[in-house]
């Protein structure tokens, strides 16, 4: 049972001088359990696209469905759709509002009408998922935390709804390397537990390492939707769209230019290491 977007188009503020078309005829299917990377230049329509997946925006043409429930403005299923598809916005720490971390994370489960015991259980679980110590953080004010900690509280707030699909809009923007690593590691773990993840990112290295499938969006059109390795094989085309390939891949291309007969389609540092050793005859 997937998320399906069909021939979907969207324009901001139609019929005004500020009209700006954001998506054209987009087709996309996200199956449960997948880890999908979504990349595209600034203003290409990534944030617009993901807001269609849980009924925050409604298609102007075409349709959007989640597990066979159509996303329509007055639909009775909207609540259920929004529970199933968790959306973590860019800079999610700006949505925190409660007195304590535990209360803030409990906000989502409370709106689902769960009983106290279940809410508590979910708060603990969600905090564990993002690696926040329950006893240490539960009574603290979210506004006194560091940027990275706030970010994790906000992500936990969405996880506590126990979604089936988790969409994150640049969850690592503005974090230090350690904070990034931790969040990415948690995402990988969550995915291994069966949660489908859509990761919007400007870091080619991150998506290369984590995603199985890569969707490239350019000026509102989906131009590539394929296995990660296939998409990064088109280095020239990506560059023309203001995108890039992972750093290791660039290294391999340079090595090849210099006359070393390496394969170029490596995605991670480990693969790169093995490939260089192989060519040098040390493997």
């Amino acid at each position: 049972m997937p998320i399906v977007l069909q021939n979907l188009s969207y324009t901001y503020q139609p019929g005004t001088p500020y009209e700006s078309p954001a998506l054209h005829d987009v087709n996309l299917t996200i199956k449960s359990g997948q880890f999908v990377g979504l990349i595209g230049h600034t203003g290409s329509g990534k944030s617009t696209l993901i807001q269609h997946c849980n009924g925050l925006l409604f298609p102007m043409a075409g349709q959007a469905m989640v597990d066979n429930m159509a996303i329509l403005p007055k639909s009775k299923d909207l609540k259920e759709i929004r529970r199933k598809v968790g959306l973590v916005f860019q800079y999610p720490e700006h949505q925190l509002f409660e007195e304590t971390v535990a209360l803030d994370i409990a906000f989502g489960p409370k709106t689902l009408g769960l009983d106290q015991g279940e809410i508590q259980r979910r708060v603990r679980w969600a905090m564990k998922m993002v690696d926040l110590d329950y006893e240490k953080f539960k009574e603290l004010s979210p506004f006194g935390l560091s940027g990275g900690e706030k970010r994790r509280v906000a992500i936990a707030g969405v996880l506590a709804m126990q979604p089936k699909y988790l969409i994150l809009d640049e969850p690592c923007a503005g974090l230090d390397p350690k904070g990034r690593e931790e969040i990415l590691y948690q995402l990988k773990r969550l995915n291994e537990k069966g949660l489908a993840i859509i990761l919007v990112s400007h870091s080619m290295d991150d998506v290369a390492r984590l995603a199985q499938r890569l969707v490239v969006i350019h000026q509102g059109h989906i131009v590539y939707d394929d296995a990660v390795r296939q998409v990064f094989g088109k280095a020239k085309e990506l560059e023309a769209m203001g995108l890039d390939v992972p750093e290791v891949m660039k290294l391999m291309m340079r090595l090849k230019e210099k006359g070393l007969a390496v394969h170029q389609d490596v995605l991670t540092i480990e693969e790169g290491q093995d490939e260089i050793l192989r060519v040098l005859g040390h493997a």
Partner: peptide, 13 residues
Amino acid sequence: ERIMKAQIARGAD
């Protein structure tokens, strides 16, 4: 609008 959307995504009504 942004915050509203973020809270709606968390089930706010």
